[in-house]
Amino acid sequence: MKAIPILRPRAPTDDHPLVKITLSAITIGFIALFLFMPLLTVFAEALAKGWAMAEDALVEPDAFAAIRLTLITAAIAVPLNMIFGLAASWAIAKFDFWGKNLLITLIDIPFSVSPVVSGLVFVLIFGLQGWLGQWLRDNDIKIVFALPGIVLATIFVTFPFVARELIPLMTDQGRDEEEAAVSLGASGWSTFFRVTLPNIKWALLYGVLLCNARAMGEFGAVSVVSGHIRGLTNTMPLHVEVLYNDYQYVGAFAVASVLALLALVTLVLKSVLEWRFADEIAAGHRH
């Protein structure tokens, strides 16, 4: 009898090997071209003339002031947005009220509006020719072209990050556990700190990390309200631009490297947390 050749049939969900290879190649190629290459270029350019030059560019007073301003801005904007985001997601996920969908849409506005427009809004309100301009000048309060304006613009642009992370999770978790806590005699604070917060802590942390990354890296909105005063109102991204336009490539890329490093640290931190607490994160979703 003629032997029947045994063909191992492919599982119905298994794609042709060629498809697998092609798709993987496209993905890897894309990531290499659009993510790794630029990142490498930033570091390579920064170190093009040696460590010493790059280091000098960072400790130079204007660069130092820019780093300081960026850190201060993030230190104010991120905690505030953490609280705003928590409050908004709490309200949306746990209560029913009229206009809820409108509120959800409003939260997304900073994502959909161009950052330049976001910045302009603040200039129009607080600037010299703006609605409150005269009053602010009479009372000697500086908002635009000063730290308050930069912080305001940053808060506006980074507002959705925390809320966007929390709303789906909190909606999914519902209010059963909070109701259980109250029926067991817990106060509002107790319920929040013992039940709600532990259930959302990873999403909250993730939202805060993203918020922080954006707060430090925001260019457009901050650029409009900052006024680009060297050593005073230049944040790191603005300083990079100023240096670049002055043909000081090493300096520009050195400061850019620090920004990129901050982003990488954020990513690594997030991955480590996800890996370390994978079980707990999985348990945080409905069982």
């Binding site: 556990e177 109701e179 259980a180 806590a181 109250v182 029926s183 817990a186």
Partner: peptide
């Protein structure tokens, strides 16, 4: 919170 009514929820609502 002051009623001391032991409530058992349909989906249990255990603190996960």
């Amino acid at each position: 919170r002051d009623r001391r009514a032991g409530f058992v929820f349909q989906q249990y609502a255990l603190f996960r």
